[in-house]
Design a protein around this nucleic acid. Structure first.
Lengths: 373, 373
DNA sequence: ACACTTGTAGCAACCGGTTCCCAAACCGGA
DNA sequence: TCCGGTTTGGGAACCGGTTGCTACAAGTGT
């Protein structure tokens, strides 16, 4: 059996096979396919016919190594199953293919070890950019690790992009794109407070998660801006899942915690909370008001439609690849902060038996932030 | 400026750079890194130090072309934003990385042209398998195109996998994995009928979409099994989106179509339908019953929790890559059909003022299908 | 002391492309 | 008919790795 038997199925043909069949050299085939470079019509025709007959496609890896490949871009996230992540992924993917890039995705399921491994793999793939998504613990160890990764990626000609993650030291070659969790939560909580609520239950995230922290800061700040110090008992940590929201409300009810409103740090947990409330025979918003965060598509299908803050996830994804691909890989640290705004639906009412101080309180406060830092 | 200046940032180092720094040949570096092949401890140490100092990672593309790369697997879908697609994507991605494969994703947004283009790109990437997801029009043209693609992929050593798409002619080198839309819909509709409903509004999909067709067949068959011929006016075509569900219910209500239950061909459209029903002041299930299809996570957060049929999307994704990677690329046609089952929640009630013929009608009918064909 | 095995490392060919550089063929004009 | 310029196409080096084969050195047995 010769080395290049073509009888077998599964033998992709090489450029040399095409060349042989067309009776020309490999260089000529390459040039015909590239389209630049003058080739006589007769030759071109013969080559094209051979290409068609052999169903030839040039090996993208070989082209890449020769410097003319389709660039690739990597997207690393926790779990594509979360609606907000899915929208970001969609934005990333659309923008990447619009810009002629391929798009590799990896889910880490929250495993830092795997994250590291993926990044290394992406460096080996010579990805043009690596986009990391989702809040994490903002420890010194984290910053050190990320800085190292950023440098390492930059020296390999690739750019690190952090989405919804805490920024690194200035000077680190990294692009950070965040949405402003704190002011979104601030506006949202202010909305609740304006309706007279004074005991609003906060369903937070994991204490070390920076997204959760930002939203909690907003919750706190809104209270303090009114001179209220919220009861620490009203702040319940947990996961960003519907089950966690469900469970926490059940427990709060069981230990008869008092509250007139609940602020969930995610629409997902709001959804869980809502069904728990319903199961307890409580009416939203008549008995208790409820707000979420993220404005996922389903927020308006909940009953009642959920008041929440809109985060432009898809745009975030697009922006991430656009800026990542626009810069030189070793550009200095840059930091974009996207604004959010609360969208008012029907899940909030004034607290029963209390006068609303200012019924026309401006409510859809376009967050005061946004733009470049 | 020499060709290999290393002063610049962004100059990834090659294996030769490492070799030079360690004072050995490139082959030795390669062998140290590969781990097989005996190398003296002293040499290994020097090489490893050079690798570390240079932060060297071998170019995955170059390895791939030399035949020792990380295999890749491509996943092409309409829109990752749909919850069921997201779960499939997750399954695919997890299984792929478990099996040591990279995972490329592309969204086509329903554009056939783009789909074709992506597939060609994936062939160029020498993807081990290309997984195509989501129902489409089952035209002769479609089958011809897919067959051609399957052959083309097979001859390039890659395997085509169709998920939730109509099977191709036997003999075509393709793997088809479907969930049984018809019997799921049948069981679901039978459930409605058993509660005494006789006019159930069917919110279908696009008429040419095979998923939509299957579910509609189930709807029809369930009726006919009871000797009922459903009013054609009760079958409304549309998109698989919440907006479409919302719009169709509003219109049906506006033209005072009579129905006691609605069967949405997707949980998404059920969600839209539900809010439209609520907006019209109708109670579910007291005034009208509602069922969906897919059992997305949010189905149980709707109010009332939605009765629907569970489709094992994540498992589908895992299975797709497992079988794709398990077979030789030119294995003959194989066809897997996954069973579904209806999950009963609170969105269905007996039709008001009518006796339920058989209240204990078995309802969670594990679909009679499943397994290999 | 010699032959033979064993352990290490390098040369060079190869993977499948691209592209620089040069030569042959062809063209029209003098 | 001869010449110079223009097409046109091939040879070979290169991209960044891997690996078969070979050569040199050290170790072992007698």
């Amino acid at each position: 059996m010769t080395r290049k038997s073509n009888g077998d199925i599964g033998n992709r043909s090489t450029i040399r096979d095409v060349a042989a069949r067309a009776g020309v050299s490999a260089s000529t085939v390459s040039r015909v396919l590239a389209g630049d470079y003058p080739v006589s019509t007769a030759t071109r025709t013969r080559v094209m016919r051979a290409v068609r007959e052999l169903d030839y496609v040039a090996d993208a890896r070989a082209k890449a190594i020769a410097g003319v490949g389709t660039p690739t871009l990597a997207f690393v996230l926790d779990d594509i199953t979360g609606p907000s992540f899915a929208h970001m992924a969609h934005g990333v993917e659309r923008e990447a293919t619009r810009l002629g890039h391929l798009c590799l995705v990896c889910s880490t399921d929250g495993d830092t070890e795997q994250e590291l491994e993926f990044i290394e793999t992406m460096r080996a793939q010579r990805a043009a950019a690596v986009i990391l998504v989702g809040g994490t613990a903002d420890t010194a160890e984290y910053r050190a690790r990320m800085s190292r990764i950023a440098d390492s990626l930059a020296s390999a000609g690739s750019r690190l992009v952090l989405c919804g993650r805490p920024p690194l030291d200035p000077g680190t070659p990294v692009t950070v794109i965040e949405y402003d969790n704190e002011s979104g939560a601030y506006a949202l909580c202010a909305h609740l407070l304006a309706q007279g609520h004074r005991r609003v239950l906060f369903l937070g995230g994991k204490p070390e998660n920076t997204t959760a922290q930002g939203r909690e800061r907003g919750y706190l700040a809104a209270h303090r801006a009114r001179g209220i110090e919220p009861d620490p008992e009203l702040r319940l940590a947990g996961d960003f899942t519907r089950d966690s929201g469900h469970r926490r409300i059940r427990q709060a009810l069981a230990q008869s915690l008092e509250f007139t409103a609940v602020m969930a740090s995610t629409d997902m947990v709001a959804a869980g909370a809502l069904t728990a409330l319903h199961e307890a025979g409580l009416s939203v918003p008549d008995d208790v008001s409820l707000v979420g965060y993220d404005d996922i598509a389903f927020a308006r299908d909940l009953h009642p439609p959920l008041t929440t803050v809109h985060v432009p996830y898809e745009e975030l994804g697009r922006l991430a690849v656009r800026t990542a691909l626009g810069r030189t890989p070793d550009a200095p640290n840059e930091h974009l902060l996207l604004g959010t705004h609360v969208v008012v639906r029907d899940s909030v009412a004034a607290v029963p038996g209390q006068l609303v101080p200012d019924a026309s309180a401006r409510v859809s406060s376009q967050a005061p932030t946004g733009g470049l830092t």
